[in-house]
Design a protein around this nucleic acid. Structure first.
Lengths: 146, 146
DNA sequence: CTTGACCTTCCCATGATGGGAACCCCCATA
DNA sequence: TATGGGGGTTCCCATCATGGGAAGGTCAAG
């Protein structure tokens, strides 16, 4: 299977497949005589695996861990489950942060007439000395991994 | 006010203040004789504004719009409110996506013994032909703006 | 043999942020 | 007055996951 077919079969673009290989997330596949990458059924499984893990919001380094467990026939399912539950916890944290944003925005919007007049509590709050905006610490980048 | 004080007063790092200026989000401030940037009270208000808007998850180009309305004394508060409610809608979409991920992960984790045995429905699902993972289209990047 | 669809590598860009180097400026204190 | 420390300035590089595109090689069908 060439990279294009592998991409179609796995849902990972050819570009991304090469990138994952370059960064060591996945091993380099075999090559045809003319230098084309060739992918086995197992490789497709692996690519699908990565794709799905991404769809669950896992960061790349977590996927590295998941793949290691996937390949390890002597793994403990408890290790996999822990990664999954950690991910749940991380997602829930970010969900909570966004829900706070929604609540704040909704409060501000409720206080705003929303007509043709210029007076606007939303802008007033954003510019002011004191504000209801929860100016939390966002340690990793902005909102976490994805 | 030099950039360091402006940073402290606004909660935006000096690095970010320069970056916002470079990208045109905020206008270039005055300079002292020796080339130091000097910030007025109004500038501090503006930086705080940007900071808070970021804390509410607004993308930079939306903040550009918000700043334009902020400066425009003939704005209609309805325009501001619309931006706020759009942001609420966007956040809610992303929240829903993440809640789906949580639900999927939780389902998989519940099916996993989580013991020392290698058998793991989580890994099995991720690698398999069919999966319960909702492989949605994530058009903008991964999970939307921030 | 040509054509078009594929593959290869290489470089560049994104958005928001941080790190750091090399250099300049200002003020207080010895 | 000299010096030191804590500012400031610009410039470059890195991140993370992804896409775009150029320049050139390969393959299969017509």
């Amino acid at each position: 299977m060439n990279i294009g077919e592998a991409a179609k079969a796995s849902g990972v673009t050819a570009k991304m497949i090469r990138y994952y290989e370059e960064t060591g997330l996945i091993p380099a596949p075999g090559r045809s005589a003319s230098g084309y990458r060739t992918y086995s059924h197992r490789d497709i499984q692996m690519l699908r695996f990565v794709r799905r893990a991404r769809d669950l919001g896992f960061a790349m380094d977590r996927i590295t861990d998941l793949l290691a467990l996937w390949r390890d026939r002597t793994r403990a399912s408890g290790d996999v489950k822990r990664l999954a539950l950690d991910q749940v916890a991380g997602l829930q944290t970010r969900i909570r942060e966004m829900q706070e944003m929604v609540a704040t925005l909704q409060t501000l919007a409720d206080a705003c007439a929303g007509d043709h007049h210029p007076d606007c509590p939303i802008l007033a709050d954003l510019e002011g000395e004191r504000s209801i905006v929860h100016t939390a610490a966002h340690p990793n980048g902005r909102f976490g991994q994805p």
